[in-house]
């Protein structure tokens, strides 16, 4: 029972961390770094960055939730 509680709060903490990371990734000034008219592999840098960061965040949510099950 005590273990279950520890597990839950661990998951909570991981989720908070992922949330904060998301706030940073999708915000000024990080966004400003990618606000350039260049492409990477033929795709605009900002577009590529946002979708990459988005996918990464989803992966982290998955890990944070599912790893504790």
């Amino acid at each position: 029972m005590a273990k279950a509680i520890a597990k839950r709060s661990g998951r909570g903490q991981r989720l908070i961390c992922v949330f904060l990371l998301g706030v940073v990734l999708f915000n000024f000034p990080i966004l400003a770094l990618f606000n350039v008219t260049e492409t990477i592999f033929g795709i605009p840098v900002l577009f590529a960055y946002l979708f990459f960061a988005w996918a990464l965040l989803i992966l982290l949510i998955y890990v944070a939730i599912e790893r504790s099950q």
Binding site: L31, A32, N35, V36, T37, E38, T39, F41, G42, I43, P44, V45, L46, F47
Partner: peptide, 23 residues
């Protein structure tokens, strides 16, 4: 011909290029 072509052509036009870095 894939995203490469779309974005290359867009970058060639100043009005559209602006959309790549809108901030």
């Amino acid at each position: 011909n894939g995203p490469g072509e779309i974005f290359d052509r867009a970058l060639a036009e100043p009005a559209l290029a602006k959309l790549m870095a809108p901030f």
